[in-house]
């Protein structure tokens, strides 16, 4: 177990040369490759992440579009049915108003006709009565009395009615 100086020197020289050789042919290229591969993996992961986010966004977009379309269709249907209801109500109301108007007019006409007929009848009856009385009591009553009698009679008839 003695020290042999040339072996120490050779060991140091050889080792330093080996460090240089391995640095050039092993450590540098391998660390470079490891870094490249690592960067590539990171890049790919980033890309995948981005693609995932994009597709998620697109999915959300489509979902919201679908939702919009659905609610729009719902709205259109609701509007249409509301419009139909309104139109129906309007028509019915109008018809009712019209009918009422027609009925009121008819009643008015009837009342008018009735009043007119009654008046005519009253006149007729009075004249006839006077004529009959004239014939009965001959020409005993003068024109003035005659007038008065007709008036009374008319009055009576009017009250009797």
């Amino acid at each position: 177990m003695e020290i042999h100086i040339p072996d120490i020197v050779w060991a140091i020289i050889n080792f330093l040369i080996l460090v240089a050789i391995l640095n050039k042919f092993l450590h540098k290229p391998v660390t470079k490759m490891l870094n490249e591969r690592r960067n590539e993996v990171i890049n790919n992961l980033d890309k995948a992440e981005k693609a995932k986010i994009d597709s998620e966004k697109m999915k959300d977009e489509y979902a919201s579009q679908l939702q919009n379309a659905k609610s729009e269709a719902q709205e259109i249907i609701a509007k249409a049915s509301k419009m139909g209801e309104e139109t129906k109500n309007e028509i019915v109301t109008q018809a009712r108003v019209e009918a009422e108007k027609v009925s009121a007019k008819a009643q008015d006409e009837i009342r008018l006709e009735k009043t007119k007929a009654l008046a005519e009848l009253r006149d007729e009856v009075a004249t006839l009565a006077v004529l009959a009385a004239e014939k009965i009591i001959s020409k005993s009553i003068d024109s003035k009395d005659h007038e008065k009698m007709v008036q009374d009679f008319v009055k009576e008839v009017g009250e009797a009615q």
Partner: peptide, 11 residues
């Protein structure tokens, strides 16, 4: 050989 390992240890 101790000389060699000593050389490495000195490095």
């Amino acid at each position: 050989n101790w000389s060699v390992t000593l050389g490495l240890a000195l490095v």
